[in-house]
Design a protein around this nucleic acid. Structure first.
Lengths: 196, 196
DNA sequence: GTCTATAAGTCGATAGAC
DNA sequence: GTCTATCGACTTATAGAC
């Protein structure tokens, strides 16, 4: 085996270092929020030096934006039949927490939400909503005010998500999946159907 | 006139000092959030010394909780007729921003939402929801799952409030009051009516 | 490519003089 | 009741050695 080169520590490829920082930041930001997580903690968690975090990402805020800008994984259910989309959407949202990817999306969204006094974070949130709801829905909705209705549906889903994961409403936590999907699904269906 | 006593600065009554700190904290927290506002800034804004802020309120977090725990002023509309409560509720929420007290409630609520990774803040939010929605609604709703439905209505209003004031969705910002109240009001009415 | 060292500043909270 | 002074720890970000 070749002896290690003269660098102060073991080398990794640039890509591997970047990725390690990315993953550490994602995990820490997602469960403690932007302000509570320092660059030192991210570096320690990634096994790199704190200066590298800035070197690779420019600033803590840019790192946050790059790492938390996930898409809400609802594309599949949004293409389903319109007549039962309300209930299907709620079921899908309730099931997010049982997959690793879903949990990550939900915790990232909560972190974005909590950091939304920063203008670029707010912009990121708007883009996520636009991609997840407005884009797939506006063309499909019958009746007037399609764009408004799509954004109101996004507001409803946002309300459900924040009640579940930000406020952590105990009544919603105790409720069974079926009644929750039926009740809230019906309210969303109301906006899908339109009926002007 | 009696000469001023030997204190290092002009005296105020304890109550007046407390109130000055309270008001400064309320304003600053409401438009910049918990983390972004330091004790020194609050003190400067109130015209007092930074040490007094801690002396009077114990800690920055206790000050935040005491000052931001407002009630959402919806009691009046919640007692209105059930058949049109959905639309009335949305109209009321949309009109909050045109009164001083309403704006204060909305910005305080936004600040609480954004600081909700702290357990006591989360608890405060739950109590606000309980008082504003569950208490006045549970007894009045006909049909099953009254408690669940009341909390889902709270989730819907929460979604509307956060879309308007936290995310600041531009589509909702541009929409006219009447269509917004009609569309979202109908969706809320759906949960009020029940129809199991 | 990775490190040490440090700049330059913030923070919440406390002790004690007056 | 109000102040000064300060503790101790933290922050983001940079400069430059290796």
């Amino acid at each position: 085996m070749a002896v290690r080169p003269q660098g102060p520590a073991r080398r990794r490829s640039a890509a591997a270092t970047r990725q390690a920082i990315s993953e550490a930041a994602r995990d820490l930001f997602a469960d403690s929020g932007f302000d509570a997580v320092g660059i030192r903690a991210i570096a320690a968690h990634a096994g790199v030096d704190a200066a590298l975090v800035i070197r690779y990402f420019g600033s803590k805020e840019r790192l946050f934006l790059e790492v938390m800008a996930v898409d809400l994984p609802v594309a599949a259910v949004m293409d389903g039949p319109l007549e039962s989309l309300g209930q299907a959407l709620v079921e899908h949202v309730l099931d997010l927490s049982s997959s690793r990817a879903g949990t990550l999306a939900v915790t990232s969204l909560s972190a974005l939400f909590r950091a939304s006094e920063r203008a670029p974070v707010q912009q990121t949130l708007r883009e996520i909503i636009e991609r997840a709801f407005a884009v797939p829905l506006v063309g499909r909705l019958r009746g007037g005010d399609a764009e408004l209705r799509a954004h109101l549906i996004a507001a409803q889903i946002g309300g459900l998500l924040t009640s579940l994961h930000v406020v952590q409403d105990p009544v919603l936590g105790r409720a069974d999946r079926a009644s929750l999907a039926a009740r809230y699904g019906a309210a969303i269906q109301c906006l899908i159907d339109g009926e002007d």
